[in-house]
Design a protein around this nucleic acid. Structure first.
Length: 824
DNA sequence: GTCAACAGCGCG
DNA sequence: AAAGCGCGCTGTTGAC
């Protein structure tokens, strides 16, 4: 059962991998374990799969078949073993019956069926084992980027085995003051008044999970504070509000009002994902500026890590999970809720101390954090609450139209479905029915297959767009299916979400994550994927960064009567940034003389002169430029040309085209080499503003993994800088709008674009100001960075997003509403 | 019924 | 032999 000699002392822990470890694997594992202070001779090593077969990737069935043997084996371990290190997904399935190691890792779970075992009336094993899942060490070897998290898991496991749970770096507060009577309430107010620093957190509840604070059923259940007084004393407080057992339940809004002013005046305010708390607090009139978000700091310092408060406290402070089981806060005893709420603020405060120090050690990151990251986070509190005005009438109308179109296409496709086909329901989505219809019934050729099955069977035939385009040459049904995809997507993905999420003020809200991407771009979608919302209820979200460009959809969004929808986007920003970073003379020349590189490519590809190139064709050329810019090879280019242009390109043509691209911009290749050297040397790259992308996978022995990291090293600084420019614009403009007493305001960003709504009378002032700000960011002043490429912001104005028209420079400088009328 | 993986497609 | 980057949402399937 074990690969090494039987330990001569009683075992103290067990380790389960995919297979019982080989001699080599055992040696490697031993090193890791010794590093975290565990003696390998005190461990029992085994595997999920007993029968090592020819098949290197055991199927679920095999694992399932082996699981009882493993459980029995574990149950028979002596009571000196309490903890089991579970390494990899197969071991996870065998011990806990769960799949998804990245989700389950770093925590502890009881292993079912490993309780008391008696033999001959004698108890030989008396308690259930505890599993601590982590990654398979082979996976870590292949992806060195996983190393630090893996070691943190091992440390956590070692602390459990060695019974050093109490050895957390940060201890819980000696006392949490529960504000349950008037005297304590007054004491809290005095403490807030006397505080220099506050870490805060709210607990909230709503009948509609995922809904905004604006929902009538939404309430603040409790609020907690960790305070640092002016004489540097720490205290932790928890104040119940709407909780059923709260003494303040009936007048909780007044209690909040009672402490509002003193709370808002505190100099330093800290929260974890404070944008959420601030949105809710603002709903009840509490307008608290957030000065330090620990989640955002965590992201800026290490963009690859997990960012939940519990996980950070675990990894950084050694604090065991304090979460309460249920998410039904109103049904949880009040003292449990309050303790939980208080601890949240306590550990948030301690993370703040750590991250603030780490940021100070990296001045470039600290500058980013303070200059525009925190300010923009505060701005997004307002943006999310505001939402985007939506034309309800059009929404309803066009939804009907989309449903009608879908039904029409469906009817046409139906003509190819034989009567009594004997299969289950007709389903034109990518389903087994569709595959049967196309490939079995109609006998169309299988162009491509999906991923191979676990047990080695070939993957299902692909029915993706590119495949359909090829099939269109064989059979008319393929074109119908291509048409259907669009209407189906519109109905199910877009209209369904918009109709559900439009609020009583005709506005649609999204949540922006400022920690959503590794490069610093924002992501947009539903409030929370798991932590605060029960998984049982379906929560719909909407991503306002992926609204189809089709007027049919973009025409739904806009500005309320009397206002204009205004979009400013950075023209070809990533290409300009790349030209700057590569110091590419030809590209620089083209931009300095006001030319358009995407258009040049479009002309080459279509063979048309500039005035005949359509917008769509230029857009497609863009994807080719970006492809080559970021390391696309000729093989993929053949696909791209076919999918985007319906253009058949031979191998030689593709190779020649790629060569021509780099011959035109030779410095790009030098820059690529430079980025590869940089990431190889430091394991990370930096954007011109100093945002860091850690790429430990560069050290992978796997060539593919390594090459991926190299391409990321090329792309990251570009994408990073471009998206930070939008955040900086947002922050400066917000400041200006306020200073000038304007009502104009941002309603969202789309990576390189800023969307605003502007009252009609303010247009003349706002348009030229936005252009001026966006094209002349204070990069020299703020970051000591000189950019020698012209930066251009294009402007579109309309009553609706989809109907907005592009303005010329002089039209921006001299706004005249007649421009729109003339255009329509 | 729930969960996880995958395919497919929307955006930049 | 083969390799653009960065995301989020919906729907299907197979396993439990």
């Amino acid at each position: 059962m074990t690969a090494q000699a039987t330990p001569n002392t009683a075992p103290r822990y067990a380790v389960v991998g995919k297979f019982p470890p080989s001699e080599k694997a055992f040696q490697e594992l031993s090193q890791y374990l010794e590093e975290v202070g565990l003696n390998p001779t005190e461990g029992v090593f085994t595997g999920a799969v007993k029968c090592r077969t020819w098949d290197a990737t055991p199927t679920r069935t095999v694992i399932k078949a082996c699981a009882p043997y493993l459980q029995q084996e574990l149950s028979l371990l002596p009571d000196t073993v309490r903890y089991v290190l579970v390494m990899g997904n197969e071991a996870l399935q065998a011990t806990l019956g769960k799949s998804g190691i990245t989700k389950y890792r770093s925590k502890e779970y009881e292993i079912a069926g490993t309780g008391t075992v008696e033999r001959d009336g004698k108890v030989i094993h008396s308690q259930p084992l505890i599993a601590v899942p982590t990654l398979a060490h082979n996976a870590v070897k292949r992806n060195p980027g996983q190393y630090s998290g893996f070691m943190a898991d091992l440390k956590f496991f070692a602390a459990k085995v060695n019974g050093k749970d109490g050895a957390a770096v940060v201890k819980p507060p000696k006392r949490i003051r529960y504000v349950l009577d008037k005297d304590t309430l007054r004491a809290l107010k005095a403490a807030l008044e006397n505080a220099d620093v506050v870490s805060y957190d709210i607990e909230s509840a709503s009948d509609h999970p995922g809904f905004l604070e604006k929902d009538p059923s939404s309430k603040i259940v409790s609020i907690a504070f960790t305070l640092v007084s002016k004489d540097r004393k720490l205290s932790c407080w928890a104040l119940p509000l709407f909780h059923p057992e709260s003494p303040w339940r009936s007048n909780w809004e007044r209690i909040l009002e009672f402490i509002r002013r003193v709370f808002c005046r505190i100099r330093v305010s800290i929260a974890h994902n404070g944008k959420f708390d601030n949105r809710w607090l603002r709903q009840w009139g509490v307008n608290r500026y957030l000065t330090f978000d620990t989640m955002l700091a965590a992201h800026l310092l290490e963009e690859n890590r997990r960012k939940s408060l519990k996980e950070l406290a675990h990894m950084e402070l050694g604090v065991p999970n304090w979460a309460i089981e249920t998410k039904e806060l109103l049904k949880t005893p009040i003292m449990e809720v309050l303790e939980y709420n208080g601890l949240d603020t306590w550990y948030t405060y301690h993370l703040y101390r750590l991250f603030r120090r780490q940021l100070k050690e990296q001045p470039a990151l600290d500058r980013i954090f303070n200059r525009f990251y925190m300010p923009s986070a505060n701005e997004f509190t307002g943006i999310e609450r505001r939402g985007v005005w939506t034309d309800r009438e059009r929404l309803v109308e066009r939804h009907k139209e989309a449903v009608r179109q879908l039904a029409e296409v469906d009817a046409k496709i139906m003509e190819y479905v034989p009567e009594g086909h004997g299969l289950k329901e007709v389903n034109f989505n990518p389903s087994n029915f569709l595959r049967w219809l196309l490939f079995d019934h109609l006998g169309l050729p299988v162009i491509r297959r999906g991923k191979e099955k676990d047990d080695g069977r070939p993957g299902d035939p692909s029915v993706a767009e590119g495949v359909m385009m090829e099939l269109a040459e064989h059979h008319p049904i393929a074109q119908l299916l291509l048409d259907r995809v669009k209407w189906n997507k519109y109905c199910s993905s877009f209209f369904a979400a918009y109709l559900e999420l439009i609020d009583d003020d005709d506005r649609i809200h999204t949540t922006f994550k400022l920690h959503g991407t590794t490069t610093g771009r924002l992501s947009s979608g539903k409030e929370n994927d798991g932590e605060k919302i029960s998984a049982k209820k379906q929560v719909r979200g909407v991503n306002l960064q992926q609204v189809p460009r089709d007027k049919f959809i973009r025409g739904l969004f806009g500005a309320q009567p009397g206002w204009y929808f205004v979009e400013f986007d950075y023209s070809q920003i990533e290409l300009r940034v790349a030209a700057f970073l590569a110091n590419e003379p030809t590209m620089k020349y083209l931009y300095q003389t006001g030319q358009d590189i995407h258009m040049t490519m479009a002309m080459q590809m279509t063979g048309k002169p500039a005035h005949l190139v359509t917008k769509e064709e230029r857009k497609k050329a863009k994807s080719v430029n970006f492809g080559f810019l970021y390391g696309m090879q000729w093989m993929k280019y053949i696909d791209t040309a076919w999918n985007n242009y319906g253009l058949r390109v031979t191998d030689d043509e593709a190779k020649a085209f790629r060569k021509a691209f780099f011959a035109q911009f030779p410095e790009l290749l030098v820059w690529h080499r430079r980025q590869r050297a940089m990431v190889a040397k430091y394991g990370r790259v930096q954007s011109p503003l100093g945002r860091v992308r850690h790429l430990p996978d560069i050290y992978s022995p796997d060539r593919e993994v390594k090459a991926e990291a190299e391409r990321q090293a090329i792309n990251s600084p570009v994408q990073s800088f471009a998206s930070d420019m939008i955040l900086i614009s947002l922050v400066i403009l917000h400041q200006k709008f306020r200073e000038m007493g304007l009502q104009a305001r941002s309603i969202g960003t789309v990576h390189d674009a800023l969307n605003m709504e502007v009252p009609a009378p303010e247009m003349g002032v706002v348009l030229p100001m936005v252009k001026e700000v966006m094209e002349n960011l204070p990069l020299e002043e703020w970051f000591d960075l000189h950019v020698d490429i012209p930066i251009v912001a294009d402007c579109k104005v309309g009553h609706r997003w989809g109907d907005a028209i592009e303005l010329e420079g002089h039209q921006i400088a001299n706004w005249d509403p007649k421009i729109l009328e003339a255009a329509s």
